[in-house]
Amino acid sequence: MAQLDYLAPLKVEDAVKALAATGSYALAGGTDLLVQLRSGRIRPDTIVDLKRIAGTIGIREEAGGFVIGAATPGAMIGEHEALSRAWPGLVEAVSLIGSTQVQGRASLAGNLCNASPAADSVPAMIAARAVCVVVGPAGRREVPVEAIGTAPGRTSLAPGEFVLEIRLPPRPARSSDAYLRLIPRTEMDIAVVGAGVNLTLDAAGVVIEAQVALGAVAPTALLVPDAGAALVGSKLDEASLAALDTAARAACHPISDKRGTAEYRTKIAGVLARRAAFIAYERAGARA
């Protein structure tokens, strides 16, 4: 008969060792892992709970940016005032995950490492230029968020590696972000398309930096440099928004499935990118 071991190491090294074995899975909030375990989609030999390792839960400010522990639950992120002021788009993306109950557990790293192309926080993290601190048998490395997911359910993490924390860069003035997703219902649903936009304006309200990331329109969440470039130098006039819409759609290569056709997803990517850009712009202007 199959046996399932549960480990809750206190030290990074012990977790790394345990995770190096085949059949070992990292556990953060478990809101993906336990569902997959119950449905029989995965049959782990060992579950390695990361939540007792120092630094995996909590939010701190460091060198002008924020460091978020990999297993920090959504509810803590949503309640963090300074983080919400600096990164309202990222925080709204995290807060969209599941329900109040799920928010008590669901984490950024879990959302990222589950490697669903539709994960809500991932486009927002990518647009924010967030970086993962990855630890493993070969030591510690820093990896941009968009380099973690490689395909649905697959990551670039080597055996024994896990995400320890997620770092957000320092925030200049007149910067803000926004995240929007389309779901057929109003909550408790999975994104048919997600769009994160992160902007910095100059004193005159002209966009000087823009990052656009899309979810659920390709095997992994995408950073779309052309879409960001379409906004730089503009005040979000009609022409730049139309260019954004076109660039966003051009980047999409979605599948048609039960959650939406490729054609629909592509159109909506343009719509949401425009709408998110508009919200980010308003927010950035207000942070003069």
Binding site: P184, R185, T186, E187, M188, D189, I190
Partner: peptide, 9 residues
């Protein structure tokens, strides 16, 4: 998740 009954909201 994918059989979508209406939620309260």
């Amino acid at each position: 998740l994918d059989y979508r009954v209406p939620v309260a909201s």
